[in-house]
Simulated assay, not measured.
Amino acid sequence: MKKMSNPILFFGSGPVAKASLQFILQHFDVEAIVTKPATKGEMAELVGNLAVFAVQNATELDELMGKQQFQSKLGILVDFGVIVPKKVIDTFQLGVVNSHFSLLPKLRGADPITFAILEGHEKTGVSLMLIDEKMDTGKLITQKTLHIKPDATTPSLTRELVELSNSLLAEYLPLYVSGKVKPRNQPHPDRATYTRKLVKEDGIIDWNKPAEQIEREVRAFAGWPGSRTELAGKEVIVLGARVVEDSNKPGNVSIRDKQLLIGTGKDSLVVDHLKPAGKNEMTGAEFIRGYLQNIR
């Protein structure tokens, strides 16, 4: 595929941004990268001789754009984590295109991938959107649906969405730049939903919740913050679990057919894989043999 000739300025700082930039470098003429201080080194390593700038917040971004004379008429933003002021947006003749990993206006905000799993959505997707001064309210260039697999985790769903995002950027940015695609308003803004940034405390398992919700949390919090609890006096991270119809007191641990069962607010959870603090990942059966010999 031939590179789009118009130079672009890339904004991104997280792992999704890095994965996206690897693709963008192959298909677009990247003038420079704007990231955050914590990721400047790895971005610089990825892009070779291209200029990499680091900003911590909107004020520093505004100052950078005032000092540097960038030639790009278009910006691409993926997983940046810094609010882009309207003054900065207006410096780009064609605006700044954000690849947002949801079907806007659903799941606006900081963490649409995790919340798609947490909320039990059957589908999500990618929206290419021109950013404005509000949160994920800009006009759409395109969006495409992705069905969520029943066993999807945040890392596995992220990989699928990055691939979808890359294909949409390659196909639709040239069409937008050439004027063949006109941005449109988001449908049904009154039905917008919002996400938030996760905190470490989100990973503490509340066994009073229904087993179905806790199972979603296990998949959604895979990687970080992890679904944490205490079993047999050990802090563990639950890595894989499934729901079974079973009446048991919330938090009560039992063993049935060599399976590790924990009661919840509704039904029970079979813990298939877990990782005790300081130990390697193990199966529920291995944990039983090592730590729960006296439980029946």
Score class of each variant (00 low, 15 high):
residue 296 R to C: 10
residue 158 T to K: 11
residue 158 T to H: 12
residue 171 E to H: 09
residue 25 L to T: 03
residue 185 N to E: 14
residue 108 R to P: 12
residue 197 K to A: 15
residue 204 I to L: 11
residue 12 G to W: 01
residue 238 V to S: 01
residue 212 E to D: 05
residue 139 K to I: 09
residue 5 S to H: 12
residue 226 G to R: 05
residue 239 L to S: 13
residue 183 P to A: 15
residue 21 L to G: 14
residue 244 V to N: 09
residue 99 S to R: 11
residue 287 F to C: 01
residue 19 A to M: 14
residue 105 P to T: 12
residue 253 V to D: 10
residue 110 A to Y: 06
residue 214 I to Q: 10
residue 205 I to L: 06
residue 69 Q to V: 06
residue 46 L to H: 00
residue 254 S to C: 10
residue 212 E to T: 10
residue 27 H to Y: 10
residue 209 K to R: 10
residue 160 E to G: 07
residue 79 D to Q: 05
residue 143 Q to E: 09
residue 262 I to K: 02
residue 258 K to C: 07
residue 55 V to G: 02
residue 63 E to A: 13
residue 167 S to T: 13
residue 161 L to G: 04
residue 71 Q to E: 13
residue 70 F to H: 02
residue 258 K to D: 10
residue 49 N to W: 06
residue 241 A to I: 04
residue 113 I to Y: 15
residue 194 Y to Q: 07
residue 5 S to D: 13
residue 212 E to P: 03
residue 265 G to N: 06
residue 108 R to A: 15
residue 294 N to G: 08
residue 23 F to Y: 11
residue 33 I to G: 02
residue 87 K to I: 10
residue 23 F to L: 12
residue 295 I to F: 07
residue 101 F to L: 05
residue 212 E to K: 07
residue 26 Q to H: 15
residue 137 T to N: 05
residue 223 G to N: 05
residue 101 F to A: 11
residue 244 V to C: 13
residue 15 P to T: 12
residue 38 A to V: 11
residue 195 T to C: 06
residue 37 P to T: 07
residue 49 N to P: 08
residue 205 I to K: 08
residue 257 D to Y: 04
residue 145 T to H: 04
residue 241 A to H: 00
residue 27 H to C: 08
residue 156 S to M: 06
residue 258 K to S: 14
residue 175 L to Y: 03
residue 232 A to R: 06
residue 58 A to S: 06
residue 272 D to H: 07
residue 13 S to L: 02
residue 234 K to E: 09
residue 113 I to V: 15
residue 222 A to L: 13
residue 58 A to Y: 00
residue 16 V to N: 05
residue 97 V to G: 03
residue 99 S to C: 15
residue 218 V to D: 14
residue 14 G to Q: 06
residue 177 V to Q: 08
residue 271 V to K: 00
residue 201 E to K: 05
residue 33 I to A: 08
residue 234 K to L: 12
residue 53 F to L: 01
residue 274 L to R: 06
residue 23 F to I: 14
residue 241 A to L: 03
residue 184 R to L: 14
residue 222 A to S: 15
residue 19 A to I: 09
residue 265 G to H: 08
residue 224 W to V: 13
residue 143 Q to V: 14
residue 36 K to R: 15
residue 31 E to S: 01
residue 206 D to F: 13
residue 278 G to E: 10
residue 292 L to I: 14
residue 188 H to K: 15
residue 266 K to M: 12
residue 287 F to Q: 00
residue 157 L to A: 08
residue 73 K to Q: 08
residue 203 G to N: 07
residue 26 Q to R: 15
residue 61 L to N: 03
residue 283 T to V: 06
residue 97 V to Q: 01
residue 11 F to P: 04
residue 293 Q to G: 09
residue 233 G to N: 09
residue 217 E to F: 11
residue 78 V to P: 00
residue 80 F to V: 00
residue 53 F to I: 03
residue 284 G to R: 00
residue 172 Y to A: 06
residue 70 F to C: 02
residue 250 P to T: 01
residue 150 P to Q: 02
residue 95 G to Y: 00
residue 200 K to H: 12
residue 166 N to T: 10
residue 26 Q to L: 15
residue 148 I to T: 09
residue 168 L to S: 04
residue 206 D to P: 13
residue 259 Q to T: 05
residue 203 G to Y: 12
residue 121 H to E: 13
residue 195 T to F: 05
residue 277 A to G: 13
residue 271 V to F: 00
residue 284 G to F: 03
residue 278 G to H: 04
residue 156 S to G: 02
residue 90 D to C: 02
residue 116 A to E: 08
residue 265 G to V: 09
residue 1 M to E: 05
residue 106 K to R: 09
residue 290 G to E: 12
residue 197 K to S: 15
residue 136 D to K: 01
residue 123 K to P: 01
residue 57 N to A: 15
